[in-house]
Amino acid sequence: MSAAPPGSDRPGTATGSHEPASPSPDHPGTATGSHAPASPSPDHPGTALDPIVVCRRWVDLRPSVDPLTGAVESDPRTSGASAADDAALEWALQAAEAWGTSVVAVTVGPTGSQAVLRDALAAGAARAIQVDLGSSGDAASVAAEIAAVARALSARMVLCGDMGVDRGSGAVPALVAAAMGARQALGLVDLTIDPAEPGVVTGWRRLDGGRRQHLRAQAPFVASVEGASIRLRRASLAGVLRSGGAPIEVVAATGPTGGRVPSWMPASTGPGRPRTHVVDGPDPHEPAWRRVTLLTGSGADRPALRVVHAEPVDAAHQLIAALADWGEWE
Protein backbone atom coordinates (compact mmCIF):
# COMPACT_ATOMS: atom_id res chain seq x y z
CA MET A 1 0.00 0.00 0.00
CA SER A 2 2.08 2.83 -1.21
CA ALA A 3 2.27 5.65 -3.63
CA ALA A 4 3.73 5.35 -7.09
CA PRO A 5 7.47 4.92 -7.01
CA PRO A 6 9.38 8.14 -7.56
CA GLY A 7 10.54 8.64 -11.08
CA SER A 8 8.22 6.08 -12.53
CA ASP A 9 6.17 6.81 -15.57
CA ARG A 10 2.78 8.21 -14.89
CA PRO A 11 -0.25 6.58 -16.43
CA GLY A 12 -1.00 7.91 -19.82
CA THR A 13 2.42 9.27 -20.55
CA ALA A 14 4.36 8.46 -23.65
CA THR A 15 6.49 5.84 -21.96
CA GLY A 16 3.95 4.49 -19.64
CA SER A 17 0.53 3.10 -20.07
CA HIS A 18 -2.47 2.66 -17.98
CA GLU A 19 -3.83 -0.60 -19.08
CA PRO A 20 -6.52 -2.09 -17.00
CA ALA A 21 -5.90 -5.78 -16.95
CA SER A 22 -9.29 -6.44 -18.31
CA PRO A 23 -9.54 -8.97 -21.05
CA SER A 24 -12.10 -8.23 -23.70
CA PRO A 25 -12.14 -8.43 -27.44
CA ASP A 26 -11.44 -4.74 -27.59
CA HIS A 27 -8.86 -4.72 -24.92
CA PRO A 28 -6.43 -7.56 -25.12
CA GLY A 29 -5.27 -7.19 -21.57
CA THR A 30 -1.84 -6.70 -20.18
CA ALA A 31 1.39 -6.60 -22.03
CA THR A 32 1.98 -10.22 -21.18
CA GLY A 33 -1.35 -11.27 -22.56
CA SER A 34 -4.40 -12.51 -20.82
CA HIS A 35 -7.13 -15.01 -21.34
CA ALA A 36 -10.80 -14.53 -21.28
CA PRO A 37 -12.18 -15.61 -17.97
CA ALA A 38 -14.53 -18.52 -17.98
CA SER A 39 -16.17 -17.96 -14.66
CA PRO A 40 -16.97 -15.96 -12.71
CA SER A 41 -17.86 -12.80 -14.54
CA PRO A 42 -14.84 -10.60 -15.15
CA ASP A 43 -16.77 -7.52 -14.23
CA HIS A 44 -17.69 -8.75 -10.85
CA PRO A 45 -15.31 -7.19 -8.34
CA GLY A 46 -14.10 -9.12 -5.39
CA THR A 47 -16.20 -9.08 -2.34
CA ALA A 48 -15.29 -8.84 1.22
CA LEU A 49 -15.68 -12.55 1.60
CA ASP A 50 -13.61 -13.85 -1.27
CA PRO A 51 -10.64 -15.73 0.08
CA ILE A 52 -7.29 -14.81 -1.35
CA VAL A 53 -5.12 -17.68 -2.44
CA VAL A 54 -1.40 -17.20 -2.04
CA CYS A 55 1.00 -19.64 -3.64
CA ARG A 56 4.01 -20.86 -1.69
CA ARG A 57 6.80 -22.81 -3.29
CA TRP A 58 9.19 -24.85 -1.21
CA VAL A 59 12.68 -24.50 -2.59
CA ASP A 60 16.21 -24.89 -1.31
CA LEU A 61 17.39 -21.35 -0.69
CA ARG A 62 21.03 -22.34 -0.24
CA PRO A 63 21.66 -25.46 -2.30
CA SER A 64 25.16 -26.82 -1.99
CA VAL A 65 27.23 -27.68 -4.99
CA ASP A 66 29.74 -30.47 -4.61
CA PRO A 67 33.01 -28.82 -5.65
CA LEU A 68 34.39 -32.16 -6.75
CA THR A 69 31.51 -33.44 -8.86
CA GLY A 70 29.37 -30.39 -9.49
CA ALA A 71 26.33 -32.21 -8.17
CA VAL A 72 23.71 -29.94 -6.65
CA GLU A 73 22.45 -31.15 -3.32
CA SER A 74 19.31 -29.89 -1.68
CA ASP A 75 18.69 -29.92 2.01
CA PRO A 76 15.26 -29.63 3.61
CA ARG A 77 16.82 -27.68 6.47
CA THR A 78 17.85 -24.84 4.19
CA SER A 79 14.64 -24.91 2.19
CA GLY A 80 11.82 -22.47 2.45
CA ALA A 81 9.91 -19.84 0.55
CA SER A 82 11.60 -17.31 -1.69
CA ALA A 83 11.56 -13.60 -0.97
CA ALA A 84 9.06 -13.19 -3.79
CA ASP A 85 6.70 -15.76 -2.29
CA ASP A 86 7.05 -14.07 1.09
CA ALA A 87 6.23 -10.74 -0.53
CA ALA A 88 3.15 -12.28 -2.14
CA LEU A 89 2.05 -13.53 1.26
CA GLU A 90 2.49 -10.12 2.82
CA TRP A 91 0.50 -8.41 0.07
CA ALA A 92 -2.21 -11.05 0.44
CA LEU A 93 -2.38 -10.53 4.18
CA GLN A 94 -2.60 -6.77 3.77
CA ALA A 95 -5.34 -7.15 1.19
CA ALA A 96 -7.22 -9.55 3.43
CA GLU A 97 -6.97 -7.15 6.35
CA ALA A 98 -8.12 -4.26 4.20
CA TRP A 99 -11.05 -6.13 2.74
CA GLY A 100 -12.02 -8.22 5.71
CA THR A 101 -11.39 -11.57 4.18
CA SER A 102 -9.01 -14.46 4.66
CA VAL A 103 -5.89 -15.88 3.09
CA VAL A 104 -5.48 -19.48 2.03
CA ALA A 105 -1.90 -20.59 1.49
CA VAL A 106 -1.40 -23.27 -1.12
CA THR A 107 1.68 -25.23 -2.04
CA VAL A 108 2.15 -27.92 -4.62
CA GLY A 109 4.93 -30.23 -3.64
CA PRO A 110 6.15 -32.99 -1.36
CA THR A 111 5.52 -33.35 2.35
CA GLY A 112 8.48 -31.18 3.25
CA SER A 113 6.79 -28.24 1.60
CA GLN A 114 4.42 -27.99 4.55
CA ALA A 115 7.08 -25.87 6.22
CA VAL A 116 6.25 -22.92 3.99
CA LEU A 117 2.57 -23.37 4.81
CA ARG A 118 3.28 -23.25 8.51
CA ASP A 119 5.20 -20.03 7.96
CA ALA A 120 2.10 -18.65 6.26
CA LEU A 121 -0.16 -19.80 9.07
CA ALA A 122 2.17 -18.20 11.59
CA ALA A 123 2.07 -14.91 9.72
CA GLY A 124 -1.71 -14.88 9.58
CA ALA A 125 -3.07 -17.14 6.86
CA ALA A 126 -6.32 -18.76 7.87
CA ARG A 127 -5.89 -22.02 6.06
CA ALA A 128 -3.16 -24.09 4.44
CA ILE A 129 -3.48 -26.62 1.66
CA GLN A 130 -0.77 -28.88 0.30
CA VAL A 131 -1.36 -30.51 -3.05
CA ASP A 132 0.74 -33.63 -2.94
CA LEU A 133 2.44 -33.67 -6.29
CA GLY A 134 5.89 -34.76 -5.20
CA SER A 135 8.73 -32.67 -6.49
CA SER A 136 8.45 -33.53 -10.15
CA GLY A 137 5.60 -31.34 -11.31
CA ASP A 138 6.26 -29.05 -14.24
CA ALA A 139 4.98 -25.50 -14.38
CA ALA A 140 1.78 -26.42 -16.19
CA SER A 141 0.90 -29.18 -13.75
CA VAL A 142 1.61 -26.99 -10.75
CA ALA A 143 -0.48 -24.18 -12.19
CA ALA A 144 -3.37 -26.52 -12.93
CA GLU A 145 -3.35 -27.75 -9.34
CA ILE A 146 -3.32 -24.24 -7.93
CA ALA A 147 -6.13 -23.23 -10.23
CA ALA A 148 -8.12 -26.28 -9.19
CA VAL A 149 -7.77 -25.32 -5.55
CA ALA A 150 -8.69 -21.72 -6.28
CA ARG A 151 -11.76 -22.83 -8.19
CA ALA A 152 -12.80 -25.19 -5.43
CA LEU A 153 -12.48 -22.36 -2.92
CA SER A 154 -14.28 -19.98 -5.25
CA ALA A 155 -11.27 -17.77 -4.81
CA ARG A 156 -10.99 -15.01 -7.37
CA MET A 157 -7.67 -13.54 -6.33
CA VAL A 158 -4.40 -15.43 -6.47
CA LEU A 159 -1.03 -13.97 -5.51
CA CYS A 160 2.31 -15.55 -6.32
CA GLY A 161 5.99 -14.74 -6.26
CA ASP A 162 7.13 -13.74 -9.71
CA MET A 163 9.75 -16.42 -10.17
CA GLY A 164 11.43 -19.26 -8.32
CA VAL A 165 14.91 -18.70 -6.98
CA ASP A 166 16.10 -21.92 -8.59
CA ARG A 167 15.88 -20.66 -12.16
CA GLY A 168 12.23 -21.54 -12.44
CA SER A 169 10.32 -20.80 -15.59
CA GLY A 170 8.40 -17.90 -14.07
CA ALA A 171 5.41 -19.17 -16.03
CA VAL A 172 3.31 -20.52 -13.19
CA PRO A 173 1.42 -17.29 -12.39
CA ALA A 174 0.47 -16.82 -16.04
CA LEU A 175 -0.55 -20.44 -16.34
CA VAL A 176 -2.67 -20.20 -13.22
CA ALA A 177 -4.41 -17.19 -14.74
CA ALA A 178 -4.95 -19.10 -17.93
CA ALA A 179 -6.32 -22.11 -16.12
CA MET A 180 -8.64 -19.93 -14.04
CA GLY A 181 -9.64 -17.76 -16.94
CA ALA A 182 -8.55 -14.82 -14.84
CA ARG A 183 -6.77 -11.58 -15.56
CA GLN A 184 -3.09 -11.42 -14.87
CA ALA A 185 -0.90 -8.71 -13.43
CA LEU A 186 2.59 -10.11 -13.42
CA GLY A 187 5.94 -8.97 -12.12
CA LEU A 188 4.57 -6.22 -9.89
CA VAL A 189 7.04 -4.17 -7.91
CA ASP A 190 4.45 -2.29 -5.93
CA LEU A 191 0.79 -2.66 -5.09
CA THR A 192 -1.88 -0.33 -3.85
CA ILE A 193 -4.78 -1.86 -1.99
CA ASP A 194 -7.80 0.32 -1.36
CA PRO A 195 -9.98 -0.80 1.54
CA ALA A 196 -12.92 0.88 -0.15
CA GLU A 197 -12.57 -1.15 -3.30
CA PRO A 198 -12.42 -4.83 -2.46
CA GLY A 199 -11.12 -7.09 -5.16
CA VAL A 200 -9.24 -4.37 -7.01
CA VAL A 201 -5.52 -3.73 -6.88
CA THR A 202 -3.38 -1.25 -8.70
CA GLY A 203 0.28 -1.75 -9.09
CA TRP A 204 3.46 -1.02 -10.95
CA ARG A 205 5.64 -3.37 -12.88
CA ARG A 206 8.82 -3.12 -14.85
CA LEU A 207 8.95 -3.12 -18.60
CA ASP A 208 11.89 -3.44 -20.89
CA GLY A 209 14.00 -0.35 -21.37
CA GLY A 210 13.61 0.86 -17.84
CA ARG A 211 9.98 1.79 -18.29
CA ARG A 212 7.22 0.99 -15.91
CA GLN A 213 3.59 0.19 -16.35
CA HIS A 214 0.73 1.01 -14.08
CA LEU A 215 -1.88 -1.71 -13.86
CA ARG A 216 -5.29 -1.91 -12.38
CA ALA A 217 -6.54 -5.44 -11.84
CA GLN A 218 -10.02 -6.40 -10.85
CA ALA A 219 -10.98 -9.82 -9.60
CA PRO A 220 -10.74 -12.42 -10.88
CA PHE A 221 -7.01 -11.93 -11.27
CA VAL A 222 -3.66 -13.54 -10.67
CA ALA A 223 -0.91 -11.21 -9.54
CA SER A 224 2.75 -12.01 -9.16
CA VAL A 225 5.12 -9.78 -7.24
CA GLU A 226 8.83 -9.30 -7.00
CA GLY A 227 10.65 -10.16 -3.82
CA ALA A 228 11.74 -6.62 -3.14
CA SER A 229 8.22 -5.24 -3.34
CA ILE A 230 7.54 -5.72 0.34
CA ARG A 231 8.90 -7.58 3.30
CA LEU A 232 6.93 -10.27 5.06
CA ARG A 233 5.86 -9.30 8.53
CA ARG A 234 7.49 -11.08 11.44
CA ALA A 235 5.05 -13.59 12.79
CA SER A 236 4.02 -13.20 16.36
CA LEU A 237 5.18 -15.78 18.85
CA ALA A 238 1.59 -16.88 19.38
CA GLY A 239 1.21 -17.33 15.67
CA VAL A 240 4.34 -19.42 15.46
CA LEU A 241 3.29 -21.61 18.35
CA ARG A 242 -0.18 -22.06 16.93
CA SER A 243 1.06 -22.84 13.45
CA GLY A 244 3.16 -25.73 14.72
CA GLY A 245 0.08 -27.79 15.51
CA ALA A 246 -2.32 -26.30 13.01
CA PRO A 247 -3.88 -28.73 10.58
CA ILE A 248 -2.67 -28.68 7.02
CA GLU A 249 -5.05 -30.03 4.45
CA VAL A 250 -3.31 -32.47 2.16
CA VAL A 251 -5.03 -33.21 -1.10
CA ALA A 252 -4.01 -35.39 -3.98
CA ALA A 253 -3.15 -33.88 -7.31
CA THR A 254 -5.97 -33.74 -9.82
CA GLY A 255 -3.72 -35.34 -12.40
CA PRO A 256 -3.47 -34.50 -16.09
CA THR A 257 -4.57 -30.99 -16.75
CA GLY A 258 -6.96 -31.92 -19.50
CA GLY A 259 -6.31 -28.86 -21.52
CA ARG A 260 -6.92 -26.38 -18.73
CA VAL A 261 -3.61 -24.71 -19.55
CA PRO A 262 -2.56 -23.73 -23.05
CA SER A 263 -1.03 -26.51 -25.05
CA TRP A 264 1.34 -24.07 -26.70
CA MET A 265 3.39 -23.62 -23.58
CA PRO A 266 6.85 -25.19 -23.65
CA ALA A 267 6.86 -28.68 -22.29
CA SER A 268 9.94 -28.09 -20.21
CA THR A 269 12.38 -25.40 -19.21
CA GLY A 270 16.06 -25.89 -19.82
CA PRO A 271 18.80 -25.09 -17.36
CA GLY A 272 19.91 -21.52 -16.94
CA ARG A 273 22.81 -20.45 -19.09
CA PRO A 274 25.16 -17.56 -18.47
CA ARG A 275 24.87 -14.72 -20.90
CA THR A 276 27.11 -14.95 -23.89
CA HIS A 277 30.30 -13.00 -23.67
CA VAL A 278 31.99 -11.87 -26.85
CA VAL A 279 35.68 -12.64 -26.82
CA ASP A 280 37.93 -11.49 -29.62
CA GLY A 281 39.58 -14.50 -31.10
CA PRO A 282 43.35 -14.77 -31.11
CA ASP A 283 45.35 -14.36 -34.24
CA PRO A 284 44.68 -17.51 -36.28
CA HIS A 285 48.28 -17.55 -37.36
CA GLU A 286 49.41 -18.19 -33.80
CA PRO A 287 50.26 -21.79 -32.94
CA ALA A 288 47.44 -23.83 -31.50
CA TRP A 289 48.87 -23.97 -27.98
CA ARG A 290 49.29 -20.21 -28.03
CA ARG A 291 45.71 -19.68 -29.16
CA VAL A 292 44.45 -21.93 -26.38
CA THR A 293 46.43 -20.11 -23.73
CA LEU A 294 45.23 -16.77 -25.07
CA LEU A 295 41.62 -17.92 -25.02
CA THR A 296 41.77 -19.43 -21.58
CA GLY A 297 44.10 -16.92 -20.01
CA SER A 298 46.21 -19.79 -18.75
CA GLY A 299 49.64 -18.69 -17.70
CA ALA A 300 48.83 -15.04 -18.24
CA ASP A 301 50.02 -12.42 -15.82
CA ARG A 302 47.31 -11.69 -13.35
CA PRO A 303 46.75 -8.31 -11.79
CA ALA A 304 48.10 -8.27 -8.30
CA LEU A 305 45.45 -8.61 -5.65
CA ARG A 306 45.09 -5.53 -3.59
CA VAL A 307 42.97 -4.55 -0.66
CA VAL A 308 41.21 -1.24 -0.95
CA HIS A 309 40.04 0.73 2.03
CA ALA A 310 37.62 3.34 0.82
CA GLU A 311 34.26 4.89 1.39
CA PRO A 312 31.41 3.04 -0.35
CA VAL A 313 31.09 5.44 -3.27
CA ASP A 314 34.80 5.58 -3.88
CA ALA A 315 35.03 1.81 -3.48
CA ALA A 316 32.32 1.35 -6.10
CA HIS A 317 34.20 3.57 -8.54
CA GLN A 318 37.38 1.64 -7.95
CA LEU A 319 35.59 -1.65 -8.49
CA ILE A 320 34.19 -0.41 -11.78
CA ALA A 321 37.60 0.83 -12.83
CA ALA A 322 39.14 -2.54 -12.01
CA LEU A 323 36.43 -4.38 -13.92
CA ALA A 324 37.01 -2.10 -16.87
CA ASP A 325 40.72 -2.81 -16.71
CA TRP A 326 40.01 -6.50 -16.78
CA GLY A 327 37.65 -6.14 -19.74
CA GLU A 328 34.61 -7.12 -17.71
CA TRP A 329 32.95 -3.72 -17.85
CA GLU A 330 32.20 -1.70 -20.91
Partner: peptide, 10 residues
Protein backbone atom coordinates in the same frame (compact mmCIF):
# COMPACT_ATOMS: atom_id res chain seq x y z
CA UNK B 1 -19.77 -20.54 2.09
CA UNK B 2 -16.57 -18.67 2.63
CA UNK B 3 -14.95 -18.31 6.01
CA UNK B 4 -16.03 -15.29 7.94
CA UNK B 5 -13.49 -12.50 8.29
CA UNK B 6 -13.10 -13.36 11.94
CA UNK B 7 -11.54 -16.61 10.84
CA UNK B 8 -8.41 -14.74 9.85
CA UNK B 9 -5.48 -15.97 11.81
CA UNK B 10 -4.16 -12.44 11.55
Amino acid sequence: PLPAPAANAA
